[in-house]
């Protein structure tokens, strides 16, 4: 599933933002309808379960509504929303780490199996296994590497968008992505080994 990446339409988006700043709730409803799926997916891929992703999504839009007046249109709304979402996810993961919450992969299996009834069951099982493995590997990676992998490889954002979300340069994004890919490959390889 390829994300709807932000092809920014400055005129339309600026009008939307201006209306949101004026307190127009219909305009904010449009923003919600446009980006809520992407925000939810990003949170889901970072956190790994639906309930937390739902909470984060609502929090993201609530924060965005509160802070829309401080949005300076230097980046796209999509980038801004994903940045808020990423920060909230980071806080949630930190709170998990403090409370020693461990990632439960069985929850993912229950949640994901239902939506593909027309496909080959074997293919579904294999894909579920691969997805489960890759998310388990991602959960074991450092947070910065996990975020950049999700943003580029799953959300399919380009370097500039990732740089705007992470607040770093394009070169830094490329370097971080290269390291994260290599780390992911090594982890997957070690997991696939007979003793791993």
């Amino acid at each position: 599933m390829i994300a709807t990446t932000g092809v920014r339409m400055p005129g339309v988006e600026d009008q939307l933002v201006t209306r949101c700043r004026a307190g127009d709730q219909d305009a904010f409803a449009q923003v919600y309808a446009q980006y809520e799926r992407q925000v939810f997916r990003y949170a889901y891929h970072l956190l790994g379960n639906r309930e937390d992703a739902d909470d984060i999504k609502q929090d993201t839009f609530l924060r965005a509504y509160q802070a829309i007046k401080s949005f300076r249109s230097e980046s796209s709304l999509q980038t801004w929303l994903l940045k808020i979402c990423g920060n909230l996810c980071r806080d949630r993961i930190k709170s998990w780490d403090r409370r020693k919450v461990v990632y439960d992969s069985t929850l993912r299996d229950e949640q994901m199996g239902a939506s593909s009834e027309s496909e080959d069951p074997l293919a579904i099982v294999q894909r579920n296994e691969m997805t489960d493995t890759i998310f388990r590997v991602l959960r074991g990676m450092p947070e910065s590497q996990r975020i950049i992998i999700v943003l580029h490889e799953i959300e399919d954002l380009n370097y500039d968008e990732i740089a705007a979300i992470l607040g770093c340069s394009r070169t830094s994004v490329k370097l971080r992505l290269f390291r994260a890919r290599r780390a992911l490959k090594e982890r997957v390889t070690s997991l696939m080994k007979p003793g791993g």
């Binding site: 599933m1 939810f40 992703a53 999504k57 994901m112 691969m130 997805t131």
Partner: peptide, 19 residues
């Protein structure tokens, strides 16, 4: 193999949001 796994994760449908 890693890229294939990530592709599978990307194509995996995610559950619908309840909110």
């Amino acid at each position: 193999y890693t890229v294939g796994m990530l592709g599978a994760a990307r194509s995996q449908p995610i559950p619908a949001s309840q909110r």
